[in-house]
Computed example of a mutant assay.
Amino acid sequence: MNLIEVYIQEVTRRLPNKTRKDIALELESTIYDMLPEDYSEKDVHRALETLGNPAILASKYNEKPMHLIGPKYYDVYITLLKLVMPIAAIISFIALVAVKFLSPVEDGAVLATVLDMILEGVGQIIGVMIHTFFWFTIVFAIAERVDGIKDDSPLSARFKPWSPDDLKHVIYVPKYKAINTFELSCGLVWTAIWGTTYFYADHLLGIYENGEKGLRMVMPAFNQEVLLSFWPFIVLLIGVEIALAISKLINKQWTHKLATFFTIHQIASLAILVIILTTTNLFTPEFSNQMGGIFTTTPAHIENFIIWGLTTIFVVFAGWGIFDVYKRANIKTDIESVNKR
């Protein structure tokens, strides 16, 4: 077997037909120039090893990339993909929850409702992420082949060759001040959960019994009409939380302004919670009487216990959250210290 001819074949078969003959002749000449007059098989091995893998050598001759997404677009591709995929997943989940708001729920079918929402949400998120990944990859793969630029140097986020001026557009985010994607996603998911629970409280919160069809709610804890009378405040809170999430996404780190925004939101949430909890007829009489019988106390005592318990839990978590974000916002980085000097 002539290793030289096989090597040339392995290179040229990866090239367009119109260039194969010329490149084969050029490559053959190059190989024989590397060999001594009275060459041996070892000399051929050494020459071919120097030229390297035929696929890599073919990629150098080929005018079109032999990869789906090369180094020029890869960094921008990964950066945008990491940014867009979580946002697309969160938006799809919130859209699903919004649809569930408008859908009728069978009385007492709480487990079926929650399980259906979780399963459908997970499936929808996976589907959205697959579609996002697919179309992002297709777009960048096409861009790789039609841009007409032979330079393979990685592009910056502005789709231009990198220069030191690009650093002016980069926000320095220390690890201890950073707002990561997981934190942002958890905040939006929590908004969807508590918003769903509030508008479906008469189907989700109450006393349950284990019947033939499984666990079902038989007695709601809250008067849904009273809860729905505060819907403008709840919608406002949801809107503020979404705006807070967008601010986190833009800033990427805790600042004093963002911490103040978070504090105002927590104080407003506490005020609305206290107003709702202290509203007359918030709890259904059946629930209060049932719980009073279980714990051998008066219905009023049960209601006061729930009000103070929920308020205390919210104050503790809100206080800790405010302390934590201000602590992270107040940490001075080395760069900030140098700039102040």
Rank of each mutant, 00 (worst) to 15 (best):
N2Q: 03
L3D: 14
Q9S: 06
V11D: 01
K18A: 08
A24Q: 03
L25W: 13
D43M: 09
D43A: 09
V44P: 07
G52E: 03
P54W: 01
L57V: 03
S59A: 15
E63W: 14
Y74A: 04
D75H: 12
P86Q: 00
I91V: 12
S92V: 13
A95S: 10
V97Q: 03
K100E: 13
K100C: 12
P104M: 00
D107Y: 11
M117E: 04
Q124E: 05
I125W: 05
G127R: 02
T132F: 02
T132K: 07
A143L: 13
V146E: 04
W162R: 04
P164H: 02
L167Q: 07
P174W: 00
Y176M: 14
K177L: 02
S185C: 05
C186K: 10
Y200N: 12
H203E: 11
G206E: 04
G206W: 07
R216N: 07
A221R: 12
A221K: 10
F222I: 08
N223D: 10
Q224T: 10
L227Y: 11
F230E: 05
L237T: 09
V240Q: 14
E241Q: 13
S247W: 13
K248N: 10
W254K: 02
T263G: 05
T263M: 10
H265A: 04
A271V: 09
A271L: 05
V274F: 00
I275M: 06
L282I: 00
Q290M: 03
T296Q: 12
W308S: 09
L310R: 06
K327H: 12
I331N: 10
D334V: 14
S337W: 14
K340D: 13
